[in-house]
Design a binder for these strands. Structure first.
Ligand SMILES: Nc1ncnc2c1ncn2[C@@H]1O[C@H](COP(=O)(O)OP(=O)(O)OP(=O)(O)O)[C@@H](O)[C@H]1O
Length: 744
DNA sequence: GAGATTGGTACTTCC
DNA sequence: TACCAATCTC
């Protein structure tokens, strides 16, 4: 080992507090620290240290990260320390992935087979809907989403159905509880678990099986937990069960970065940690090594608006750097083009595209940027975004594989039985369901028995027979064929590929592309079982980091990451803070949104750009004259200390590549200074509100335009209106820039 | 009774 | 946009 006077090499780049945190190996340790203070670095170094100093074997370390991405990153950094072992730290992962591993070993303890399938959110919803239908419960009065949420909530609190108390008055809760009970029974029958079950089953096992619990306790000599502020009740319980008597547990967290309360996360876990474990050593890290002073101070000024903070100091040695830019745009499209312009003209020379990220509140917000980047040929990658595995064609393909692997996966059966069309419609399916319930058999076996009777029409029977024959054949094939080839065969022989090819639409083409992508991502797994066992926990196709690309992701997905340049678009009231969260939880929610904003800002090292649009379009962009809403800048922008900001004019000619820019005089729209515009917007919104229905313009209507003044509509072509302006004559304009006035 | 078509609605956030 | 449910058509 390479030693210097101050200790091993890997300690050299740490400051004193960080070193202390790494070297304090034994006993409970709480590391409390602000953004960018090196928490993750300490954690990684700590793992390294434990292995290098031979405190324990690498498989005796339990290291819990928040995302798979974080786990992969840490694994990469620690990789190579353990000679000749590619899986250097086997117990490194998220609560869910580690629980998955534990549960595969001890599935029988909770009445499951080790080959169980992990259901995703869509499967859960489908199952709940099925139960509601079977129980004759009104789906309108008991929305499946709400029930799913309640079940999730209960599981986060470690509550099994029998442990839940309801008051007789709470009708919907009683219904939900009833569903919960049946839901769990159905899961067991299908040998399936949902996300919550992964952890809940583990806890049940730890609780009821002392030997199993003790074996884990003995094995895990050192436990490390990242992002502790975002752990919930059951995760904490889980940790407590397997923390050994030596209490070598180290957690790191930042109360200001708690952004998962909607998943049951409780910041108070941090406070309780010291109570739970006596003799807890607490170390604070206060120096930020990531951001310029301007960025850091901007973040601090924002978060100071929250109450109930633990109150950490955070400081930086870095220079002031550039000011934080606040950009105002007239609409989302301008925001996208303005952003791409800044990247091309301002940043591309200095920074790698890989080091530029656009972080959004909700995943659909990436779309506008994607469209822009495709158009001008800037390469980009979308990170995270659950979307891929939720796509219909991907789910279809996975369900074929699931069913081949496990015949009692009723949800998978139901999904593919008539895709592609096999003349097995609703009525037939209902029949199969009914028989299955009566005979207590799964849908597949029920179908097999129904082939012998005359319950089904000959034609239906014929195609059902073929499907069953095929499925059996594929199951046999799966033993010798590798999983990628298997999928190819299945898609071909089932007629799925043909169905898409015959459709001859661009959408179908895209679906075929997606399936290709699925196949190539399957190659990362060595066989079908490994693929199926892990795929549900993999939220998105792992985007390759090679190549030069701009990153697009949600703020939640950016947790723990850092980039030289960060763009934060869409800072508008209703979007950020999000309307729904305000409605649900009021000020508590605003505070969490503020923490989210804080996380977003503190991802930036050098440059930070925050922007908002004065008009937003909702729900796609097909009907141009529809769904425009004036929007107001986010309250968070107001809360930033102006000292550190540069408030900008509209960065670019907003309509330079707009179809009508040539002949409409759009380029003459005044580019008023951004701030001016921003303050004006507030008044303007009020005025606009009295006529916010901008959709129903009629010929003859008198209108007002900011630049051209008043005029009358003389022709309408979709959203393009020909106006005869009093002062400036005939002009073609887009409806969104007009507001109705009284006819004179 | 199956399949095509239309129409309504959803967009938080993630394991 | 894109999926799902209700409605129409053969
Ligand atoms: N002692 C140090 N000297 C120089 N750079 C450091 C030091 N400690 C950490 N860094 C750097 O600071 C940056 C932030 O570190 P890290 O990601 O570990 O912080 P963090 O506390 O986990 O941040 P966050 O909670 O915001 O995700 C990294 O680029 C890291 O390399």
């Amino acid at each position: 080992m390479n030693m210097s006077a101050t200790g091993p090499n890997y300690l050299n780049t740490l400051n004193n507090q960080q070193k202390e945190a790494v070297l304090h190996t034994d006993g409970p340790l709480l590391i409390l620290a602000g953004a960018g203070s090196g928490k993750t670095k300490v954690l990684t170094t700590r793992v390294t240290h434990l292995i290098q100093s031979k405190k324990c074997f690498s498989n005796q370390i339990l290291c819990v990260t928040f995302t798979n991405k974080a786990a992969n990153e840490m694994r990469e950094r620690v990789q190579g320390l353990v000679v000749g072992n590619t899986n250097s730290v086997p117990w490194l992962g998220t609560f869910h992935s580690i629980s998955n591993k534990i549960l595969r070993k001890h599935a029988e303890a909770v009445g499951l087979k080790p080959s169980f399938t992990i259901l995703d959110t869509l499967d859960q919803l489908k199952l709940i809907k099925n139960i509601l239908a079977a129980e004759n419960i009104d789906i309108k009065k008991n929305p499946p989403k709400l029930i799913a949420h309640l079940i999730d909530h209960w599981k986060n609190k470690a509550l099994t159905p029998s442990e839940i108390k309801t008051s007789p008055s709470d009708y919907s809760k009683i219904n939900a509880l009833k569903i919960y009970r049946i839901y769990q029974e159905r899961l067991k029958m299908m040998n399936c678990v949902d996300f919550g079950d992964l952890i809940l089953h583990c806890v049940t096992i730890f609780k009821n099986f002392k030997e199993i619990r003790e074996s884990f306790k003995r094995n895990f000599k050192y436990i490390l937990v990242d992002e502790f502020q975002d752990t919930n009740f059951i995760q904490n319980l889980w940790l407590n069960y397997i923390t050994g008597d030596t209490k070598n547990i180290c957690v790191v967290g930042d109360d200001d970065q708690s952004i998962y309360s909607w998943r049951g996360a409780e910041v108070k876990n941090i406070l309780d940690f010291e109570k739970n474990f006596s003799n807890t050593k607490t170390i604070k890290l206060e120096q930020n090594y990531r951001s310029t002073k301007n960025i850091l101070n901007t973040a601090s000024s924002l978060i100071s608006n929250n109450d109930d903070r633990l109150g950490k100091k955070i400081w930086s040695d870095f220079s002031d750097g550039e000011k934080v830019w606040i950009n105002s745009y007239s609409d989302g499209r301008d925001e996208a083009s303005g952003t791409s312009d800044i990247i091309e003209k301002e940043l591309a020379k200095q920074f790698s595209l890989n080091n530029i990220s656009i972080l959004v509140r909700a995943s659909f917000q990436t779309r506008e940027f994607e469209e822009r980047f495709i158009r001008i040929g800037l390469p980009y990658r979308v990170i995270g975004g659950v979307k891929f595995y939720e796509r219909a064609e991907i789910k279809d393909a996975l369900c074929y594989l699931r069913l081949i692997h496990q015949k009692n996966d009723d949800l998978a059966f139901e999904r593919i039985v008539n895709t592609p069309k096999r003349s097995i419609g609703d009525t037939t399916l209902k029949k199969i369901h009914e028989f299955s319930r009566n005979s207590n058999q799964n849908l597949f076996d029920t179908s097999v028995s129904l082939l012998d009777g005359d319950e089904l029409k000959p034609k239906t029977k014929e195609s059902l027979k073929l499907l069953i024959k095929n499925l059996n054949q594929w199951t046999k094939l799966s033993e010798k064929l590798d999983h990628v080839e298997l999928l190819e065969r299945v898609l071909d022989e089932s007629g799925y590929t043909k169905m898409l090819i015959d459709e001859k639409s661009p959408e179908a083409e895209a679906r075929l592309e997606n399936l290709k992508e699925l196949r190539s991502s399957m190659k990362n797994y060595s066989n079908l079982i490994e693929f199926l066992e892990n795929i549900s926990l993999q939220t998105a196709i792992d985007e390759e980091w090679d190549g030069e690309k701009i990153n697009l992701m949600t703020i939640h997905a950016a947790k723990g990451l850092e980039f030289e340049c960060i763009f934060l678009p869409g800072w508008e009231e209703g979007m950020f803070p999000h309307q729904k969260s305000i409605e649900e939880k009021g000020d508590v929610a605003v505070q969490e949104e503020r923490r989210l904003a804080y996380v977003a800002i503190t991802r930036a090292k050098q440059r930070l750009f925050i922007s908002f649009a004065n008009n937003r379009k909702f729900f796609g962009n097909k009907n141009d004259n529809n769904d425009w809403m004036p929007s107001m800048p986010s309250r968070f922008i107001d809360e930033l200390d102006k000292k550190y900001l540069k408030i900008n004019e509209i960065a670019e000619d907003p309509h330079q590549d707009f179809e009508f820019s040539q002949d409409t005089g759009f380029s003459t729209i005044p580019k008023s200074p951004g701030w001016d515009r921003y303050t004006k917007t507030k008044e303007k919104t009020k005025t606009i509100n009295f006529t916010n229905n901008l959709t129903d313009f009629k010929i003859g209507q008198s209108v007002h335009h900011e630049t051209f003044g008043n005029g009358k509509i003389i022709h309408i072509d979709g959203n393009k209106l020909l106006i005869n302006f009093k002062d400036s004559g005939e002009k073609k304009v887009i409806d969104k820039y007009l507001r109705k006035i009284e006819n004179e």
